[in-house]
């Protein structure tokens, strides 16, 4: 049977070559018949393709260059940074920068913390947003438009606007004055993780309005007949949701989870506000510049502190160490990130 396939393949190839030849021989003839139009068109196409390759290469390089630059800098010794002859390839290759950055950021423990917190928060956010998005997409209830306008409001209010009062809100946390009545003053929840979990459970975390919007958009496109068939067959509202709708929505939920995870990973605004006591990669990275300076003053014994070049080199190394896990994730889940956005059909 394989023989037959190979034979068939050869036949096909042969035929293809044959056809190509006949095409090539008739190209000039056809060109002559069309009065030179065909040749012009072909030339125009080729030139366009060449320009396109250059442009795409240039733009890709533009995006990748900072990362490549950081990689080369992170392997350099301090003296290499100031040599004008050293541009991309380090003369004195070293992994010392990585060791020091790991020490300054307490990399092992911080990485574990970040993974756990990003994962749990992303899961919580997506679970709640799925419920809400489903509610908006498949049910009719009074004031639905108003509540959806509130979702849009959540998307466009910058969290910085309410950061002042959230700050105070959790500094003197209270529910209807109950805790205040017992303890005399509100609970100080700042510096603990609880407020952020509470906010995530209430869909008010980072970019949660966007997830609700995307998930709603997806559920709206599921045909009504599917839902009705489930009701006719005796499914309740909840079991329809769990057994019919959720399995369909796996791609969009995965991509929302990935987004949430990644943005949680790099977020410093909420991290700085709520997680003062828990070391996360984002906050550690923000502090690495100062720490290098202190390290040089105290440990190395150079009173003038770290040099400009060395600090930036350490920051580059730190950034690389923070984004490496994300890069690996992106390599494996690239489709999950890109395809589901295009399939969700975002429209206004």
């Amino acid at each position: 049977m394989t023989d037959a396939v190979i034979k068939g393949g050869r036949n096909m190839e042969h035929r293809k070559v044959h056809r190509k030849e006949s095409e090539a021989s008739s190209f000039w003839e056809r060109n002559r018949k069309s009065g030179g139009y065909l040749l012009k068109k072909r030339i125009r196409e080729v030139i366009y393709k060449i320009i396109r390759v250059f442009m795409l290469f240039g733009m890709c390089f533009l995006i990748l260059q900072p990362i490549l630059n950081k990689i080369s800098v992170s392997f350099m010794e301090e003296q290499d940074l100031y040599k004008s002859t050293v541009i991309a390839v380090p003369e004195h290759f070293t992994t010392e920068n990585y060791r020091l950055a790991a020490e300054l950021m307490n990399y092992g423990g911080t990485l574990l913390n970040t993974i756990v917190i990003s994962c749990t928060i992303a899961l919580l956010q997506i679970a709640v947003c799925t419920l809400v998005g489903y509610g908006f997409a498949r049910f009719d209830f009074p004031l639905k438009k108003m509540w959806f306008a509130c979702v849009l409001l959540v998307i466009i209010v910058p969290p910085q606007t309410i950061s002042t009062s959230l700050y105070l809100h959790f500094r003197y946390f209270d529910i209807l004055g109950i805790i205040g009545a017992i303890r005399g003053e509100g609970l100080n929840l700042r510096g603990s993780k609880i407020p952020y979990y509470l906010m995530s459970a209430g869909c008010m975390g980072l970019k949660n309005g966007l997830y609700i919007y995307m998930i709603r958009q997806f559920f709206r496109n599921i045909p009504k007949e599917l839902e009705e068939a489930a009701y006719v067959d005796g499914c309740g509202i909840l079991s329809t949701f769990v057994r019919i709708m959720l399995p369909d929505a796996t791609p969009i939920l995965t991509s929302c989870f990935l987004f949430s995870f990644v943005w949680e990973w790099t977020d410093s605004f909420y991290a700085r506000m709520f997680m003062g006591n828990t070391s996360l990669l984002a906050t550690q990275l923000a502090a690495i510049g100062d720490r290098v300076n202190k390290y040089v003053v105290n440990v190395v014994g150079n009173a003038s502190g770290a040099s400009v070049g060395y600090t930036s080199c350490m920051i580059s190394t730190g950034i690389l160490m923070v984004i490496t896990p994300l890069l690996i994730l992106y390599l494996f889940a690239q489709k999950g990130f890109v395809e589901s956005i295009s399939s969700s059909g975002i429209k206004m």
Binding site: V128, L131, V132, Y134, G135, F136, R138, F139, D140, F141, P142, K144, W147, C150, V151, L153, V154, V157, I162, S165, L166, H169, L198, M199, A201, G202, C203, M204, I212, I237, L238
Partner: peptide
């Protein structure tokens, strides 16, 4: 269905009132 819809978006309503409006 209206009640179920409200139950589904309840987390959002609570979160919106407590962590956004207030």
């Amino acid at each position: 269905k209206a009640i179920a819809g409200y139950l589904f978006i309840l987390p959002f309503i609570v979160g919106f009132l407590v962590f956004m409006i207030q």
